[in-house]
Design a protein around this nucleic acid. Structure first.
Lengths: 242, 242
DNA sequence: GAGTGGTCTAGACCACGCT
DNA sequence: GCGTGGTCTAGACCACTCA
């Protein structure tokens, strides 16, 4: 059944179950086969099945009831941001049902301000790579993302950087950095000078998300100020009660 | 070592490790004992230790590095909302370093509008319990929470409802309901009529969080419109990259 | 009572990082 | 090569729900 040994078995099972839920093989509200049945079907131990189901449960995709069974969450379709999606804007836009397009408005170098330097754990005046990127949902501009990375981390010529990729791919490809965790601060703010590019009037309110990405070594890799037109794109997240 | 068999062992270990991290027994950036060492210390299997560490890792409390070790996250103190804290406002305020106080402005009954009825899966005109509650951080009003619950779920006289409790305690005590998951929609908005009670001017922007709580049976239990003064209280969340 | 998910054990082997 | 975390197995017993 599971011939490819390249990926962990649990990962393969995870993908299969996700697909079945997405396809409606397991319809919303329906009960899944029991852990033992799934273990049998895939020819794995029950423990392996349980690690997979645990992951789906924390995302809110399934609901588990002791003594009863495992059910597909009916509300999951209404949600565009499960855990770990609030900084991946392309993903957020797609999950909201729009076509996504990313335009790199500017990729240049700047000197770190005091504040930047503090956040990135280096000295003021050091050179940073600035990326201004605009995200479109069905050709309407919805997110302006301004990111700063220490230029010293850049592993390729600056001209090669493709600003249309997802941020974690940019970090992996051009900076050889892997993200361990992200902190996001959520504000409301008035559109101000970001209004123009987002096609808003200056007195409109919008969401501001301040993100910081860190490596496993606790080193800050990239920081960002992101402005989101929440009239078009409404971040909606699920959180499982544990 | 672990005599009390009342709670699951993994739960007890979880509490102990959390406390050690909080106390600085395991200081930020420091490496934890290996899984085998911890398993030995607590007299449990390595699998049990792993389930505990997995939970701490998704919260961003620790960082795990294959071939190396497990480290305490240095940035965790800066964060007030780990997964599952964005609707528990009392918790959010405390984690932000403030004293919390909750005032029940109004507890009354209203008839469901079309919109309420749709969200709560009942008929328009059915009676609902309305709770308007104001959260204070160090005696400054920071969150106005308006919640609606079907009155039919109420298991005690309305006069007994103590609006100063956390929402999940209110639901458990007076409605005998357990929350399985929560969806939160995040907007920015202008203060408008909520300005007065939050001591803002009407043209100030604030965060609006629309929350819906569901049971394991996928039934909506309570819905809420919550207005948050993000000049005082900044929701900041961690998300582990998986 | 039968079947479900929840907890736990004692092993095994693998992938990775360091020295 | 050694120790780490990552994956996986094949059992066991418990707590719970439902007929």
């Amino acid at each position: 059944m599971l011939v490819t040994r390249s990926k962990p078995i649990s990962e393969q099972v995870n993908v299969i179950l996700r697909r079945r839920i997405g396809n409606g093989v397991y319809a919303p509200g329906q009960r899944l086969p029991s852990e033992s049945e799934l273990a049998n079907e895939f020819g794995v131990s029950r423990a392996t099945i349980r690690t997979v189901l645990a992951k789906l449960a924390v995302e809110g995709l399934i609901l588990r009831k002791q003594g009863d069974g495992t059910y597909v969450n009916k509300r999951i379709e209404e949600v565009n941001t499960h855990l770990g999606g609030l900084w991946d804007f392309a993903h957020l836009i797609v999950r909201s049902g729009f076509e996504v397009k990313i335009e790199a408005l500017e990729i240049s170098t700047v000197k770190a301000t005091e504040e930047d330097a503090l956040a990135l754990a280096l000295d003021a005046g050091e050179e940073l790579l600035l990326m201004k990127r605009l995200f479109f949902a069905d050709d309407k501009p919805v997110i302006l993302a301004n990111n700063l990375v220490p230029l010293s981390l850049l592993a390729t010529p600056i001209e090669e950087v493709n600003g249309q990729l997802q941020i974690h791919k940019i970090l992996r490809r051009y900076f050889h950095q892997e993200i361990a965790f992200v902190t996001t601060e959520i504000f409301s703010s008035l559109a101000g000078e970001e209004a123009k590019v987002l096609a808003l009037s200056p007195q409109d309110s919008l969401l501001k998300l301040t993100t910081r990405f860190y490596s496993k070594e606790n080193q800050p890799i990239i920081i960002g100020d992101n402005y989101l037109n929440d009239k078009i794109l409404k971040p909606r997240l699920v959180q499982a009660w544990s």
